[in-house]
Every structure is written in C-alpha cells, then in structure tokens.
Amino acid sequence: MTSARVVELTEFGGPEVMRLVNAGLPAPAAGQVQLRQTAIGFNYIDVYQRSGKYPLPSPTGLGHEAAGVVEAVGEGVTALREGDRVVYMHAGIGAYASRRNVPADKLVKLPDSIDDLTAAAIFFKAMTAQYLVRKTHPVQAGDVVLVHAAAGGVGQILSSWAKALGATVIGTAGSAEKCEVARAAGCDVAINYSQADWVEQVIAATDGRKARVVYDSVGKHTFMGSLDCAAPFGLVALYGAASGPVPAFEPELLSKKGCLFLTRPSVFPHNADPQTFRANAADVFQAIGQGAIRAAIGARFPLEQVAEAHRAAEARATTGAILLLP
C-alpha cells in the first residue's frame, strides 16, 4: 500500500476545518490508475463545498482537478501506462491529495507542449469555456458576445477564445481594476456592472445591436440586465450563480424581451461520455497551442498551506488561477 497525503473534511466551516492527513492508498482497482499528482487546481466551488454551502457527504475530500503522472495501472486499462502525464477535472471529489486512484476514463493525456502547472491551472475552466463557445452557442466571426465576470478564471478564457474566433467581446466586471484585467484578456470593451447604468453602457458599446449571446455566471445581480442586453432571438446562457439564484419570472418575459432563448448548461453533462470528453479536451489543447487561451497563474501554495489558499481566494487577494502543489 502506498502512502498519500490527503486533505480531509469531517465538518463544514472556515478554512481551518481542512486537515492534511497521511493515508494508505491501495493498488488501483480494475479500470483505475494511480497518480502521483504534480499540480492541483483550485476552483471557487471548493470554497462552497468546504463551507457547506454546497454540502457533501462527510467525511469527504475536496477538489475537482489536477495534473499528474501515472504510477500504476489497474486491470483492464490499456489506453494509459506508467509515466504518462495526464489531467482530469471530473474524476470525483478528492483532488487535494499527493496521490490518488482515478478511473482511467476520466483522464486525458497531456501533450508535451503543455506543462503540468498550466494544465492544472486552466483545464476545468477551459473545458467550461469550450462547451460555451462551441456547443451552447458556436461563436462565429462578427458575433457580439457579452461575458459577465470577464476578469474571472472562466471569464478571461471565454473572452480571449471568443475574440480569437472573431467576435466583438463586451466584458463586465465588478471594479475598474477588474475591467483592466478583462481588457487584457481580450475584451474590446469592459464595463463595471457595479454602476447603475451598466446595461445602457453595454447597449451603447454595441451601437444598439445588443449581444447575440450573453454568458452569465453571476446570476441574481446581472440576470435581468442580461435579458435587456440580448439581441432579438439571442441566447442567454446562465452557467453559474455567483451572486445567488436568479429571481423567479414568467416565461412570457422572454417573448417581450425579443423572443429570447434561455439555457442553464453545465460542464459535466457535456463531458459525461469519455470519447466526447477527450475530443473536447483536444479542442482545448489546440486552443492553448494556438494562443487563443492561456493560463494566468496568480498564486501557488504548498498543499500544507491549503487553508491559506482558501483565505486568499475568499479575500479576492489574488488574480489569476490558484494552484496547490503536493
């Protein structure tokens, strides 16, 4: 049995409830591989799950994504072998660990051109952006696209990828400083949605055309404005609710706002099938290779300092991705 360091949660609460423990790790079962993890990605959903806002069965681990090296292969696994570099983002809770066993069909090989830190920093967020710009609304040259929270991890990738596809990208963010980040990520215009007239500013920035698609991860604070920013027959893709759930409304409102389409997509159903997952990942790797998206690593913390990493995230003390290093 191999030894692993694992972040364990036996109660929900502040960052201090996370405990780094030594645990025995058995050999991988059939269909699994054992990974030595080299870089672990932080996502804000980790805070929600740690605090109990999105409760998990207890005791539990934390974390959704990591990169690492295959150290052992279970029975029946033929597509991977020892020494392969891999990345994952939906292999079950428990990425906060130095080693773990993972189902082989939840892993994708990393090309030599992408290092482990980049992969762990960007993969989950880039896979989210991938289905949004390729499936939810296939972005075309000439589209006007509105990206809320454009300075966030997914928002920056959405903005740069949509720009690379030829769209005019309007971004919103919650402060003047974050608007600068959004512009650096590829937004043609960045608007502070803390200002009362942000909707009017968006419409003016498009010369009244409005947006063919609105990507909204904020929810409560932006959603009704998103409906006003969408062009007739446009799409509002509500893929998150960082400010809380959207208010209840009558579907007739979509007709009144311009016969709009509304969807509430998620990354996991778009990657539930292993073959589709790998094809989507290949699309992400190609976009990274072409420079359409890039990793912005804001902070790195040893796994022993996982509590400090969560505190920095909650205090908005960093910009860019946060990594945990085993």
Rank of each mutant, 00 (worst) to 15 (best):
M1G: 03
M1L: 06
T2R: 13
S3N: 11
V6E: 04
V7W: 14
G13H: 10
V17F: 15
V21I: 13
V21C: 15
G24Q: 08
L25W: 12
L25N: 15
A27L: 03
P28V: 10
Q34P: 00
Q37W: 05
Y44S: 14
Y44K: 01
I45D: 08
D46R: 15
K53T: 13
L56I: 02
L56M: 08
P57Q: 10
G61T: 04
A66Y: 07
E71V: 07
E75A: 13
G76S: 11
R81H: 11
V86F: 01
G94I: 04
A95L: 01
A95I: 11
Y96R: 01
Y96F: 13
A97L: 00
S98A: 03
D105Y: 02
K106W: 10
K106H: 04
L107I: 08
L110S: 05
L110W: 06
P111E: 13
S113D: 03
I114F: 05
I114D: 01
A120R: 06
A121K: 14
Q130P: 13
Q130K: 09
Y131H: 14
V133T: 08
T136F: 15
Q140H: 13
D143P: 06
V144T: 12
L146S: 08
H148N: 03
G153W: 04
G153E: 00
S159D: 07
S159K: 11
S160E: 06
A162I: 12
A164F: 15
T168A: 15
G174T: 10
S175E: 13
K178L: 15
A184R: 07
V189M: 01
A190V: 01
Q195C: 08
V199K: 03
V202W: 12
I203W: 00
V213Q: 04
V214C: 05
D216S: 09
G219E: 14
T222Q: 01
M224C: 02
C229D: 03
P232E: 05
P232L: 05
F233R: 15
F233E: 02
V236D: 13
A241R: 12
A241M: 07
A241N: 10
F249R: 15
P251K: 10
L254C: 02
K257F: 03
K257R: 10
C259N: 07
F261D: 09
F261G: 07
F261P: 09
L262W: 02
S266N: 10
A272S: 09
Q275I: 14
T276N: 11
F277N: 14
N280G: 06
D283F: 07
Q290V: 03
Q290D: 11
G291V: 05
G291T: 12
I297Q: 12
I297H: 07
G298T: 14
G298A: 05
E304I: 05
A309T: 00
A309W: 05
A309H: 03
R311N: 03
A313T: 04
T318I: 15
G320K: 04
A321Y: 03
I322H: 01
L325I: 11
